[in-house]
Amino acid sequence: MCPVYEAKDYKSDQYVRWCPGCGDHAVVVTLQKAMAELGIPPHQIAVISGIGCSSRLPYYMNTYGFHTIHGRGAAIATGVKTANPDLSVWLASGDGDSLAIGGNHFIHAVRRNVNINAILFNNRIYGLTKGQYSPTSARGFVSKSSPYGTVEDPFIPAELTLGARGNFFARAIDVDMKTLQDCFVASARHKGFAVTEVLVNCVIFNDGTHKDRSQKDIRAERTITLRHGEKMIFGANQDKGIVLEGLKLRAVTIGQDGYTLDDVLVHDAHEKDSTMHLLLAMMGYMDDSMPIALGVIREVEAISYDEAVKAQIEEVQQKKPERKLHDLLLHGDVWEIK
């Protein structure tokens, strides 16, 4: 009989050293619940991180863990997964960690499709180093490192992930733990590099950065939770939907201006062509009248890097007669010096 796990089985005995009210608390609690839902034994899980507030997460998990160096979490997680393909590997990283110094490692882990579950904490700030702007901070953002406002445009994690040929992208808000848990479970069940962006709040250095989407009284109107095979409907009264007009998406009120439920798009997360997924992922960023998309936006199966490496090794081993180091050393042209 398989053991039944609870969230507490994945919780370490370490005191959680995040600021009270930090959105990271919701992420670790939700991750523990997701792991219990998945039923993966703690000893078959490894949580890898880089540097930053979010990268303390391995300390709070009763699993294998590795708190690595700034920006290199994706590279080390790739090594862990490739060497131990049976492990469930999770990468905890912030927007400054993965998208700045670790940007190269991040996009190539996406491109290679390593079977890793990446949790991208996005609070649009460097929190651990006390409030510098990050690669996701908006143009004009005033911070300790940009006292007169930034003069550059930010990365949008979804755009970067899909541009790197990502096959899985999901998004959730720290205060919506149900959607976040669903994203984590889907991520774990997906074979390949799975990015879940979590819009988290930094109460000290960037408080309220996502409030235009996360506040409870406006969330239903400003966000839409996508579910594969279901109509793209949102709103406090579930009376709004997403339609396609030409090459653009538009939010409409069902029953007005000639739009009916039949006009509302059905979400297909499994479509290999990423064009629609990119349009959905970018909603609310280029046009503020559109809701921001939450849930699993893209989920497409493809061979993973670690799976391909394992198959290649097995194929080469079948063709090579050497089975031991002694055989390898004596293979080919050898001579003895006396």
Score class of each variant (00 low, 15 high):
Pro3Ala: 11
Asp9Thr: 09
Lys11Phe: 09
Asp13Leu: 06
Val16Tyr: 13
Arg17Trp: 09
Cys22Ala: 13
His25Ser: 10
His25Tyr: 15
Ala26Cys: 09
Thr30Cys: 13
Leu38Glu: 10
Pro41Thr: 04
Val47Gln: 00
Val47Leu: 01
Ser55Asn: 15
Leu57Val: 08
Tyr60Val: 06
Thr63His: 04
Arg72Tyr: 00
Ala77Phe: 00
Thr78Ser: 02
Ala83Leu: 14
Asp86Lys: 04
Asp86Ser: 13
Asp86Gly: 09
Trp90Ser: 00
Leu91Phe: 00
Asp95Ser: 15
Asp95Val: 14
Asn104Ile: 05
Phe106Val: 02
Arg111Asp: 14
Asn115Ser: 10
Asn115Cys: 11
Asn122Thr: 12
Ile125Leu: 09
Gly140Arg: 10
Gly149Arg: 05
Leu160His: 10
Leu162Phe: 09
Leu162Asn: 01
Arg171Leu: 08
Met177Gly: 01
Cys183Leu: 09
Val185Thr: 08
Lys191Gly: 03
Val195Cys: 07
Val200Ser: 14
Val203Asp: 06
His210Cys: 07
Glu221Leu: 07
Ile224Leu: 09
Glu230Ala: 06
Phe234Gly: 02
Gly235Asp: 07
Ala236Lys: 15
Gln238Arg: 14
Thr253Ile: 12
Gly255Thr: 05
Tyr259Thr: 13
Leu261Cys: 02
Val264Gln: 14
Ser274Thr: 03
Ser274Cys: 03
His277Pro: 02
Tyr285Thr: 04
Tyr285Ala: 02
Met286Pro: 02
Ser289His: 12
Met290Glu: 10
Ala293Pro: 08
Ile297Asp: 00
Ile297His: 06
Arg298Ala: 01
Ser304Cys: 06
Glu307Met: 12
Ala308Ser: 14
Val309Gln: 14
Lys310Arg: 14
Gln317Val: 03
Gln318Ala: 11
Pro321Glu: 09
Trp335Pro: 02
Glu336Cys: 10
